[in-house]
Every structure is written in C-alpha cells, then in structure tokens.
Design a protein around this nucleic acid. Sequence first.
DNA 1: GCCGTTTTCGGCCCGACTGTTTTCAGTCG
Length: 615
Amino acid sequence: MPSRDGPATHRIARAGVSSYPRSVARSNDEVAALLAEYADLISITGGDAFKARVYEKAARSVGGHPADVSALDAKGLREIPNVGASIAEKILEYVRTGRVSAVEELRAKIPAGVRRLTRIPTLGPKKAWVLYEELGISSVEELAEAIRDQRLRDLKGFGPRTEENILHGIELLRSSSDRVLLDVAAGLAEDVLAALSQVPGCLRSAYAGSLRRMRETVGDIDVLTAAVDPEPLMAAFTELPDVTEVVAHGRKKSTVRTTKGLSVDLRVVPPDAWGAALQYFTGAKAHNIRTREIAVHQKLRLSEYGLFDAETGEKIVSKTEEEVYARLGLPWIPPTLREDRGEIEAGLRGELPDLVEESRIRGDLHTHTDLTDGLAPLEEMVAAAARRGYAYYAVTDHGPALAMQRMTDERMLAQRAQVRALDGVYGRRGRRRSGGGMRLLHGVELNIGPDGSVDWPEDFLAGFDLCVASVHSHFNQSHREQTRRLVRACENPYVNIIGHPTTRIIGRRPALDADWDEVFAACARTGTALEINARPDRLDLRDEDILRARRHGVKFAVDSDAHAVIHLAAMRYGVGTAQRGWLTGDDVINTWPEARLRRFLRKGRTRRGAGRPAA
DNA sequence: GCCGTTTTCGGCCCGACTGTTTTCAGTCG
C-alpha cells in the first residue's frame, strides 16, 4: 500500500486500525488505514472536528465491513455506515488509482513524523501541531531532544508535567515499537503461506517461531517449507508483492523485509527433515535447549535436520515432530506450551494438560452491537455467531455508566425483548435439525466505577442472564484502591465475569496496578470468572497472569469482545493465550454445556429468575 | 462529512481528568 507514513503504520504503538481475521480482504484494512490517517491529518491541521470524527468512524466501519470494499460500487459502498457520497468517491479513487488526492494534499502540508507524534500517549493532535508550527518538530527524536534542551517551556499550554508525561509516553512507544500484534503477523504469514503453497514443488509449508507459539507480539516471522529443489520457492518468496527489501537470498534461507516493516525468514528443508525443522524453528530457545540436553543425555544429537546418534552420526528420526519428541521420551508438546515453563517435566511425567481448543468453544460471552459502540445490528451479530456453530451466544452492550454510550433502562429492556425473540428463532431452528440450536443470553458489560460499584442496582441486574464488568477509566488509582475496587466488583452477586481484567493495551497502556493475587483469590471465592479478552491489542489476561490466577482455582471466559461481525473470529487468539496459560476445557466456562454454564452464572444469587432465560 | 421517530439543515457521545490556567483546552475512553 502506498503510504507516506511508511512501514511503521502497522507497528504496535500505532496500530490504530487493525482487523484481525484473514477472511476479510486486505483492501478494507488499507482503506481503513487511509481514512484514519485522513482523520488524523484533519485534526492536526485544526480542521472541522466533526468531519475528522466522521472519517474516524468511517475507518472503523470499513475495517469491520464483511465485504471487500474493492469489489463494491458507489451504491454498495454507501451502504457501509458512515460512508456517504464523498467518502465513497475517495474509496473508489483509491481502488482505481492506489491513491486519494485529498489525502495526498494534506500529506504534503504535514510531515509524516508529526502524525507519529500523536501516537505518544497524552500528546494529541493539537499539541503536535503546536510543536510543529512553533518549533518545527516533526519526529519523536526531535521532540525528545527539544525536551532535553528545555525548549518546550516557553510554549503556551506546556508545563513541566506535560514534559514529564511526554517523555514517559516516548519510552512506552520505543519499548514496543519493534514487534507487531499477533493478528498482523498471522495475516502476513498466512498470505505468504498461501502464495508459497502454490509454487510447484512445495510439499509442505507452515509458520513456526513465536507466531506458532501464539506469543502476544511477534518480532519476525519464520516460514518453513519442504521441497526437494528450493530454488523456485526462494525465487517466489523474494518476489512476493509485500516485499520491500531482500535482506538475504540463499538456497536454504532467505530473509525479506515487508511493507508492514516486519521481517520474514523462509527456510526450505528436505521433506524428510520436516519434523525436526519445525520443532527447531518453533522454539522457544529455552525449550529447544532443554530438548537438546535430553538428547545429549541419551547420546543423541538434535538439530534442525533431525535426531542423530551422537557417535555414529546416523539419523534416527526427523520426519515428524511427534517422532522427534517420542524418541526423546516425550509426548508431542503443543507449541503454545513450548516456553520451558514446566512443559518438559510435565511431558516426562505424562501430565501435560488437555489444552482448551477453539473447536471446544461453545459460545462467546462478551460481544457488542450497534446499540452501543458496536458496528453491526443485533441480528447480524447473532447470525454470524450461529454460522460459527456456537451453542450459545451472549449480547453484552455497555451499561449507562459509560456516558458516551447513552444507555437507558428502556433501551436495554427493548434489546432484551429482541434477544428473547431471536432466541426463539435460533433455539428452535437448531432443535429441528440435528445437534441443538443456539441459545441467546442477554447480558451487559457493566462499568466498574472507582469504588467498585456498577451501573445498576441489584434488582435491575437480576434481569440479565449474565453480567460482564470491566474497568474503563480511573486507571491511576493507588494499588490499594484498585485492588479494593476489583474485589468489590467480584463480590457483587450479579457480576459473573471481570472483562479485560488488567485493562492493558499492548504497547499503549500498562496494566492496572493492583494486588492481583488478592483479586484472583476473590474471583475464586465468589465464583467470578476472569476474562481472557481475545482482541489482539488486549489479550487480557495475558499468559503469565492466567498461570497465576489458575493456581487460585479461578475459572475463565475466553471472549472476543467483538464490536463487529469479523471480530468474532479473534477467538483464536484468545484460545491461543488460554493455552499459553495451560488452561483445559474444564477451566474455561464457555466450553461447558449450557446447563453447567447457567449454573455457574447463578453465582451466589438468591433471587429466583436471575440468570435464567425467558420462557 | 454523515445522517434522519431530530429528516435536507443543524446537529454530531459526553463526562472526567490533567495540567495548565484564573476560566479552560486538550486528551481519553
């Protein structure tokens, strides 16, 4: 994609627009990024704030739109929310020419670095513009230097605390800028695999490395292929459309840099070395060191080419990972566990967990509609959930405490009536066929206030089938206050799930400062589940927290927190994170049959009718 | 620039927090 902003557009700290599943054409992402950039440029230059907001909203709608925008005509485009005549025309221009003149004009006025300044937390478009206009600052580096030289002191609206906050923001930006979010890496890797698998002579292909292990961020992508003759694969690889630079080009290994700023390594191995190579390149390094040590103790030698007799050099096994692990006395270890966090010992004892898998997820318990900040109407979200084969599905729009969502009792109750009506349709529909239908749960995402209270009193909450409760503000409370707040939310008999518990946003916002062991203990004690929010920029709880919470006996819910149909597919990243936390199906409430789930949702409630479906 | 039980113009999510101010602008969710 032609972008003045360059490759860093997709880096974590500035991943403003990102649509995770690959079922969506990439042109939607490109157009969304362009519209978002235009919105930023309007804001920075002091343009009409409402106009900027429309472009922002249009960017989100396009990013979340299920159809490929490059295949739509003007009429089709205008059916996308927030896309009218003007934006439709710009999208058509982009599809036709690869550029949008209005965006080009604004880009000519503002160096790309100025927009990058707004990625610094606490530094918005207005301050960025002042810095550029008054001091000519157009990069993060220049800004850091200007602060060192105390040149911000004389600017109106900039004081010592502002300097401090900006410096802290720059630190945050820098510490995360060399890795990308999981969905960006997965999308690129899947594109590369799709292209390489078409090359004649390509016998197998897969991605390995931290992406296969589903680490929350990815530094570069390792792609592995099996072929007798590597040349055609290497040639095709270095000529992929995403490639901006060929860093290395050899027979066994090539490295390229891509438009997303991410490096991709391709390794071509002989077909009979596939298993050993996949094991080797999946890592993690610490896991590989352990497996090689085990090999050495057995007078063996393990490399990417196979497992060999250390003395004779004779190859023993190499075709599959299973064979390699088996010969070492280990069961096959799922990639998400390969971090040397006890998986070797557990494997040796035959006690690896029976990990939760995406196919075992029976429903999504945290999703939104356009009643609040979602993009799709209830009917569309529910239809999409049914297509995923779920046995149950919860609609959990925001309560009134998030003032921006304009929720009222009446609107919530009206939605409930709609949900009940749809439940009648979907529940029955399935029962007539085989295997049962999809039951709909009416829920809410409550806001946890600074004191731990939530949006509604208990008698109103009793009407919901389930309540997710999450923190959306007051991130800087003291350790003690934050802990008390979360514990109090758990103690509410109607709160079933703590949504995105730490509220961290990868590369942009740190986790809340709380006594998590105390919070986890409260969850276990009160029968409150912790969410594993599957959005790639959240993945909250993260793997280490899950491991810790699990020891308290907490149950978990892996939720997409979908705000659009396509976001439902983010479930895979949540499941990957749950696996990294060693969770089994029994640990995850939304793998349970409906009846068991409903029992869990009743929690400590005394009132009858709470948590039950309407007849 | 988009949208409409507010309907072809006049609104557009709105409240809290922070840091800068002395009455408010910028940022965030």
